[in-house]
Design a protein around this nucleic acid. Structure first.
Lengths: 209, 209
DNA sequence: TAGATTGTTAATCGATTAACAATC
DNA sequence: TAGATTGTTAATCGATTAACAATC
């Protein structure tokens, strides 16, 4: 019954399509062809059509795609029209940066808890930081969708062990280590130093860039 | 004369090899086979050998690889044994997080300048924040290898236009937009919302995870 | 020498690109 | 209708995996 898995290459392009289409919408563009989208995104027109057709036919032959309609369809596919309860674990530099990140719609991403080794408050008492000791019971009592992991690498796996069986659906991991969690939990890693090291590789080896 | 380009898939695995080998070294492990490394990393033994052999033969038939030696070789390949002068442009949440990020060796990454719209100081006067107006002349007078872009998306391309022709070798871009720069400059993007959106896609569509 | 494991070539698999029939 | 552009199948390309000879 299960359809073929969407390859991760396609999944990584979906947010890019969403971003470019949002820009086009803001510029007031109403229609776009795969050829035009190709020029903007750098992907081939063929690839764009292939990608979209994994999820359905959003275009009109001879015409192209309606920008707003396609943008909204992609938002639905990704799941951007739902709300998510988020907990930030580890309130160091990265946890704080994520807390205040303005890049995504904060109506959809409710940070309902912030945890760190040290209890306390932050931002003139506006943020209550709870002890990590209380994370497990918090996850049991609240409907947490996403855990943002901003703890040191030694702590990351311990937190993930707490998470399994708590109905958490995704982990956004900033710790520089691979974590595992039991059950149906998606994990997305941001490994900053790996990204920097890739950059340095290309700087050191420009013939491969 | 130019050899075949190393594929980006390989380049992205190099920092992972480096990370796992560093861990192994710290644990006191002296030798490792591609099969053992496969179990640790999740890559196939075949792939690991293929990847390494793009850069030379680092192993010994019948024996395996010496951990420290291989780790050092990979560091050399990536370019981790050199020093880099870094400038941070945009000192908001992300710029600050990167400034204080402890994940990479700060001896090798000298932050020699921090720029923002507003001049000032930070961290009890320890950090001087210069006006972005002065960035261009700073780049001319100093040998800057890497520019970290932590500005809003509308500003990002303007900064990149300043950068071309200034001997900058790499841009680490955190702005949620694609930037371009003339000349032989490597660009590495960290698109936080795209990463989050991928996570949400898999949360919403677990059958594709 | 025998066993182990690399380095490397060949086979397979999957993703991208090209082509074109369908159709607006 | 003619022109344009999608949706989709087929061809190509590149990356991964398998196999094995080389050799420590």
């Amino acid at each position: 019954m299960q359809k073929n898995k969407i390859s991760s290459a396609v999944v990584r392009r979906l947010p890019k399509y969403f971003r470019f289409l949002t820009n086009l919408e803001n510029e007031g563009v109403e229609k776009i062809s795969s050829k035009q989208l190709s020029e903007i995104t750098g992907f081939t027109a063929s690839q764009i059509r292939q990608d979209l057709n994994h999820f359905g036919g959003f275009g009109q032959q001879g015409y192209g795609y309606r920008v707003t309609e396609l943008k909204n369809s992609i938002a639905d596919i990704i799941g951007l029209n739902k709300e998510y309860n988020v907990v930030i674990v580890g309130f160091g530099r990265i946890g704080r940066a994520i807390y205040q990140y303005k890049g995504f719609d904060t109506k959809k991403f409710n940070v309902i808890g912030v945890f760190d080794l040290e209890e306390g408050t932050y931002d003139e008492g506006k943020i209550e930081i709870k002890s990590i000791d209380k994370l497990e019971s918090f996850l049991e009592k609240n409907d947490v969708d996403i855990v943002v992991l901003g703890v040191p690498k030694n702590e990351a796996q311990k937190i993930c062990d707490m998470i399994s069986g708590k109905n958490v659906k995704g982990i956004w991991n900033f710790a520089p280590t691979n974590v595992e969690v039991e059950g149906d939990v998606a994990i997305e890693n941001i490994h900053l130093s790996e990204s920097l090291y890739s950059l340095i590789f290309y700087m050191s080896n420009p013939e491969h860039y």
